[in-house]
Amino acid sequence: MKIAVIGGTGLIGSQVVENLNSAGQEAVPHSRSTGLDVVSGRGLGAAVAGADVVVDLTNSPTFDEASRAFFQNSMDNLLAAAREGGVGHVVILSIVGTDQVPELDYYRAKLLQENLLAAGGIPYSIVRATQFMEFMDAVMSWTADADTVRLPSTPIQPIAAEDVAASVVEVAVGAPLDGIRNIAGPEIFTLDELGRITLAHKGDPRTVVTDPTAGMFAVVQGDVLTDKDAHLAPTRYADWLS
């Protein structure tokens, strides 16, 4: 099976390509570094030509309202190229709860991407993942200073990137879902609790202050970023840290 992995050189994409090829599939990575531009559509036709499956792992360079234009243009271009190329299955990676946080521009943009795919007329699969363990340092950096890290008590269910990649591979080589599969890590934490665990492991002396107004996730209400009924990945946060 030939699989075009758009965004195939990033954190998830590089692992997806490696896992697919190790399993005997023909996975080809495409990204800006290979001359692809999903916003303008440059190179997309050639990238998907002859592919049985297209996996789109591209991401907006910003989390603000400009992300909407990125996903609108990239999905329009990808679907047009996939139709012309006779692609039989398109897979995208999205976020658990993306339809539950309308306050966030980025989540609204990801929901737009999902809706465009679902209406695109090509068999499809959407893999929604919870927050990546790899992003915890970045999340803390948004609201940190020399002595403290301010974080809200938002419940999250972190998942390791390698587990996300494995799930994307499983979906890509299977029959199209024509729907959504939620995947999540095996444990639920509050974000401030996870910050304390992370700093303690690193020997970082800063203090985590619980602040319901701090950072992007402050607007999230309830436990919509978690899903106890999701397909649960095996990697626990303490094991990932180690």
Rank of each mutant, 00 (worst) to 15 (best):
M75A: 15
A49D: 04
K110P: 01
A81D: 03
A51S: 11
G97A: 06
G50W: 12
G86R: 05
T34E: 09
I92K: 00
F70Y: 11
D64K: 15
L111S: 10
S67F: 02
A82V: 14
G41L: 14
M75E: 15
H30S: 13
Y106Q: 15
L79S: 07
L11F: 01
V54E: 02
E84W: 05
G97Y: 06
P29K: 02
S40I: 15
G45E: 13
L93F: 03
N21W: 10
D76F: 08
A47L: 07
A80S: 08
G121Y: 07
L11K: 03
S74F: 11
V16N: 00
P61C: 05
I12W: 00
Q72G: 08
G24S: 09
A69C: 07
E114F: 13
A118F: 11
L116S: 11
F70C: 03
T98D: 14
I92T: 02
D56L: 07
R42C: 04
E18T: 03
Q113L: 15
V87Q: 00
L104R: 01
N59I: 14
Q25R: 07
E18W: 04
E18C: 02
V55T: 13
E114M: 10
A23I: 13
L112F: 14
A27V: 02
V39P: 05
T62S: 02
P61I: 12
Y106H: 10
L93P: 00
T58A: 11
D105S: 05
N19M: 13
D56T: 09
R108Y: 09
L93A: 03
V54H: 04
Y106W: 13
G43T: 02
G121S: 12
F70V: 12
G35A: 05
V87R: 00
D52L: 13
S67I: 05
L57S: 06
S31A: 15
R108D: 15
S14P: 06
L79D: 05
L112W: 08
F71A: 03
S60C: 06
G97Q: 02
S67A: 04
N59M: 04
E26N: 12
V53D: 01
V90W: 00
G24T: 01
D52S: 12
G86S: 09
E65N: 12
G88W: 04
L57R: 00
G45I: 03
T34C: 06
Q72E: 09
N59V: 11
N59W: 04
G121T: 14
E103H: 11
I92A: 00
V48S: 07
V90N: 01
L116Q: 12
G85H: 11
N73T: 03
V54G: 01
S67W: 00
F63K: 10
A118W: 03
V17H: 01
L79E: 01
L116H: 14
V53G: 05
Q100L: 07
V91Y: 00
G120N: 08
V48H: 06
